[in-house]
Amino acid sequence: MNDDNIKDANWENVKDDEAKIKFVNSKKRSNIKKIASLFCVVLVAAVSGGISGAYVINKKQASKIYTPDNRMLVEPKQDKSEAKDKSESTKENSITEVAETVGPAVVGISNKSEGYFGLQDAGSGSGVIIDSNGYIVTNYHVVQGADKITVKLSSNKILNASVLGADQRSDLAVIKVDAKNLPVVRFGDSSKVKVGDTAIAIGNSLGEQFAGSVTAGIISALNRKIEYNGSIYKVIQTDAAINPGNSGGPLCDLQGNVIGINSLKIGANLNAEGMGFAIDINEAKDIIKSLMNSGKVSRPYLGISGESVVSEDDKIQGVYIEQVEKNSGAGVAGIKPTDIIMQVDGKKVRDVSDIEEIIESHKIGEKVEAEIWRDGKTIKVEVVLSELKGNK
């Protein structure tokens, strides 16, 4: 076979192969590319949207966390102004709740005494019901010298009352009415009270005409020592208004706990506004219990009276003894007028209130050591504490 025949045969084969191959139209190829591109865009958008959505959800969930201790929901931080508004609203609501809860257990007390024209009003005050069977706490000065005492309940019912026990030194008294199932107050723990805490006073300000008056302020100071009628009172100071008639009523915290018994008389000689005083409830609890159980308060007693003195060189400082009560612990121990007590129970004393505070931490019959300066010498004597008689 010659070369021309070979070429012709090859050409025929090529033509046959080409006939078997199918060529794709260029327009169709372009449309496929467009569809693929569109699919990629949609896929990318979907993925991006999913990631963004997950981020937002996670962020929101992160603002609400369940603590492992109590599984309580912790809310996200509020704007300061919103938090302040919420705090003030809560405070106002709490005062309202305290007034509604404690108010029914606050009573008005009228002191009546015999006069030329029969029974006359001698004064009025407030009180708090501490037992549903009719036991009421008030101030000593509210019922002092009364020939007849009446109690007006929050329901406006008026009942006669009798004095179970009264203690002039603490300015506290317990009276009783013949009634059952009365609303009562709840005593708090005044040791937990802090300066700046909200304080709420409830009572019959200026008498029955303004019964159940509620005033609010803050705790201005704690552990104030105020002297009244020769006694030293440990009191809570508040700027909540305490007016005549509030005496014997409760000073409460925001939870409705009684943290003090209001007493106008204690701060009356200060003649200042925004300075009210309440007898610390932790100081009052044992006294109230004693008055309920035995009608009196038994206290240890040293048996001296005197005043604070300091020598010119400051070496001698203490209480100069002016009088020693006969048969008292001090009298039996040989303490004399003109002695100067410098220490009691190993603690330095500057005035009579220091001595009283030390003595009251002991019981009747216990012994305390007193360091005395006498005739230029320092001596030590042992004193057995006697019982304070009467309402001194």
Rank of each mutant, 00 (worst) to 15 (best):
Y66S: 10
G127E: 07
I266G: 02
A268W: 07
K347C: 10
E382G: 08
L153A: 00
A211G: 01
S213K: 05
S361D: 15
N327G: 01
K152T: 13
A19H: 08
G295V: 02
A19Q: 10
S132M: 02
N160D: 14
A166I: 07
Y301H: 04
P250N: 07
K86D: 01
N111K: 15
Q144D: 13
V368Q: 02
P76S: 05
I6V: 14
K91Q: 13
D69W: 13
S48Y: 07
I6Q: 11
I226Y: 10
V107E: 05
L153F: 03
K86N: 10
K380T: 11
Y55G: 14
N243S: 04
S30H: 14
K148D: 06
V332A: 00
V195M: 08
S154F: 07
L153D: 05
I259S: 03
K86R: 10
M275I: 15
V185A: 09
G256S: 09
I355L: 11
K389F: 01
F277H: 10
E283C: 09
S48I: 15
S353D: 09
L119Q: 05
I288P: 08
V368H: 01
G376P: 01
R224G: 09
T215L: 05
K33R: 14
K389A: 09
N229F: 11
K80V: 15
L43G: 07
V310L: 14
D85V: 15
Q61I: 03
L264I: 07
I358E: 04
K234F: 13
V235P: 02
S294D: 15
I242D: 06
D69E: 14
S48W: 11
I232H: 07
A62W: 00
Q144E: 08
A122H: 05
L172W: 06
N2S: 12
S205I: 01
Y55P: 06
L164D: 04
V344K: 13
Y228H: 12
S154L: 08
A221N: 05
V107A: 01
V98G: 10
R169D: 05
I288N: 11
A333K: 02
R224Q: 10
S126N: 10
E325V: 11
I379T: 05
S26T: 12
I218D: 04
F39V: 09
E92Y: 14
H362E: 06
I281D: 09
E12H: 09
V143P: 12
S298F: 06
N293R: 15
S190Q: 08
I21E: 05
N282S: 04
V319H: 04
P250I: 04
G331I: 00
K377R: 14
A272G: 09
T67S: 13
L385R: 08
G376V: 04
